[in-house]
Nucleic acid binder design. Structure first.
Lengths: 112, 112
DNA sequence: CCGTAGCGTCTACATTGTAGTCAGACTAGA
DNA sequence: TCTAGTCTGACTACAATGTAGACGCTACGG
């Protein structure tokens, strides 16, 4: 699938955050992961809207958590990134990485 | 100044492309750099609009190339990224990198 | 001079990002 | 049980970013 459309910055972070939690992740865990890593607050609106769009594009999918798995009855969504989601993520990152090549000096060693 | 607003994907690429060309870069060189690296076409409209917004935010600045420097009279713009531009770039990248940590396996790295 | 080509500007519109508000479900206290 | 409080998820509206195309100007060739 040609992800002709690039992922937005935030979409990328959401995808990444879900992956951080392994196979699947509960919405709020994902939100917290982003807030922690990006060091900024994420409103519910921004978050769910993005998740919704990502699902519409087939990059993520979700199932409802069973009643027993959690304290909630049937309202928790368990997300996972699809193959296409991972592909899109890689595609987006590749472009940025290519352009960043050789700029570690300027960018001040963001990582080690 | 806290760049509380994230850089868009494309804005980030533009900034990176300018840096790739050293101190300054001509608009079209930048555009070509992006097309080459991201492997997609960039319309003039998308490009200049982004450059304009970046300038309005103080992340890039430019001067006109002197008549003698190039074959054009006074129409070539020479861009450079400001300190704030670099800071914004680092800030944006940091969040994504933090979220990407440990996912090289899944993302398959930049497999050559 | 006219036609062509390259560079930069402008306007309009699609997509993505953000905030705020509303509703349903569980918990606690009386 | 009823009422209040909190948490999760959905919806709506709006701002910011991404994209395309048209337009005008300057240089070049006929």
């Amino acid at each position: 699938m040609s992800p002709k459309a690039f992922l937005g910055e935030f979409e990328q972070m959401v995808l990444l955050a879900i992956l951080q939690h392994g196979e699947t992740a509960f919405a709020l865990e994902v939100r917290r992961e982003i807030e922690r890593s990006a060091d900024r607050s994420v409103s519910r609106g921004a978050f769910y809207t993005t998740l919704d769009r990502l699902e519409k594009k087939g990059l993520v999918e979700w199932t409802e958590a069973e009643a027993g798995e959690h304290r909630r009855a049937g309202s928790l969504r368990c997300f996972s990134v699809t193959r296409e989601g991972i592909a899109a993520l890689r595609e987006s990152r590749r472009a940025v990485e290519t352009l960043s090549r050789g700029l570690d000096d300027v960018l001040g060693g963001v990582r080690g």
